[in-house]
Simulated scan of single mutants.
Amino acid sequence: MPLVSTGELVSAAQARGHGIAAFNVITLEHAEAIAAGAERAGAPAILQISENAVKFHGGRLAPIAAAAAAVARTSAAPLALHLDHVESVELLHQAHETGFGSVMFDASKLSYEENVRATAAAVAWGHERGVWIEAELGKVGGKEGEAPLDAHAPGVRTDPDEAAAYVRATGVDALAVAVGSSHAMTERTAALDHELIGRLRDAVPVPLVLHGSSGVPDEEIRRAVTASGMVKINVGTALNTAFTGAVRAHLAEHTTGVDPRKYIAPGREAMTDVISHFLGLVSGTAR
């Protein structure tokens, strides 16, 4: 199936009152698991490659992008390709030529004024080329290399009035907001501020994005989507936790094996199970 644009999938999910899940791609097996999980769930999904994943691949975007796009195009599920957490303008400018229909441009480490200027420039560049742009306002902690951050500390969460002004000033197509989740959580214990999500939904005219969803319990995600208005749900660490757990279990049982296919396969299947579950959760079909 041809690649579908992220904007199209997000708009369709929002119109139905559902969510759309976006999953991080680090290896080819991540992409294959996303495609398989989407087919199993009968739901669309977004494959997203982060700037950190690009760094892992030697700073070369094109090879992993081509692999992910090839997997998506041979899938029976509607899939989009998204470039995530991009801080480098140089990497941003590679997005269009490597097949990405959307980019999350992350200037959240800058001051508010600098964030607005940098993001507005990214939006102008993207919209000239038909690229959908997501941005972040607030502090969603937990990224590699960052100091620990309490998701509920004063000044961390996104302010609705500031968010509305930010969207007007930048022209972004979607906004990632800080509402109680955190990146890289391996336990699902995050508590979301649903009252704040509702206020942000009412104040901001573009879809809301939840980063750090791996650490959010099922019922919290379901409520955030169906009752509060969150649309794009990003999942990364949950895939890596499942993959690594399955690999460890296989290697503990097969101590003399050397064929990586033997332990990568159960890792990929474990990710597929997680992906199918999250897709059912955000689309309202999970039992």
Rank of each mutant, 00 (worst) to 15 (best):
V231F: 06
S75G: 09
H254I: 01
K262Q: 14
V140C: 01
V258C: 10
N52V: 06
E114L: 04
P44W: 03
I197G: 05
L28F: 11
I34V: 14
T119M: 07
G37V: 07
D159V: 06
V54N: 04
P217G: 06
S50V: 02
R16P: 04
I275G: 05
R60E: 15
S11D: 13
R73C: 12
R188K: 15
A38E: 10
A224Y: 09
G58W: 02
V89F: 02
I221K: 07
A190C: 14
E128H: 08
A70Y: 00
A68L: 01
A120C: 01
A227W: 00
P207T: 01
F278L: 02
V131W: 00
G141M: 04
H18W: 01
S75A: 15
L92H: 07
D218Y: 04
G267Y: 02
N234M: 10
A70S: 15
V274G: 05
R222D: 12
A69C: 07
R16K: 15
L3F: 08
L92S: 09
L281T: 07
V71L: 10
S213A: 15
I26F: 10
R223F: 02
E187L: 14
K232T: 11
M185D: 07
V172E: 01
T186E: 13
T272K: 13
L92K: 12
W125Y: 14
F105W: 08
S50F: 08
H18S: 14
V116Q: 09
D150R: 10
A69Q: 14
T241K: 12
G17V: 07
E162W: 00
G130M: 07
G236P: 01
A203I: 03
G145H: 01
N24L: 02
Y263D: 09
G142D: 06
V258E: 13
V140R: 07
K143D: 11
N234D: 11
I275H: 02
G145C: 03
I264F: 13
A270F: 02
E269S: 15
G130W: 00
L196Q: 14
N234W: 05
V172A: 07
L91Q: 12
R222W: 11
A69R: 15
F243L: 15
E97R: 15
E136G: 05
M230K: 04
D159M: 03
T285A: 13
G267V: 08
T237I: 06
P266G: 08
V225S: 13
H183V: 08
V209E: 09
A153S: 09
A174K: 06
R129C: 10
H250M: 06
V123L: 05
G257F: 00
S102M: 04
E128F: 00
K55W: 03
A67R: 13
H194N: 14
I221G: 10
A65G: 12
L251C: 11
I233P: 12
A69N: 04
D193P: 10
T74G: 13
A252Q: 14
L83T: 12
A286W: 00
G236Q: 01
A184M: 14
L61G: 12
M1S: 11
L110E: 14
P266S: 03
A68W: 05
I64E: 11
Y263H: 15
N24Y: 06
H18L: 13
P2W: 00
A286E: 13
K55F: 10
G101H: 06
G280H: 07
V71C: 10
A15H: 03
A35Y: 05
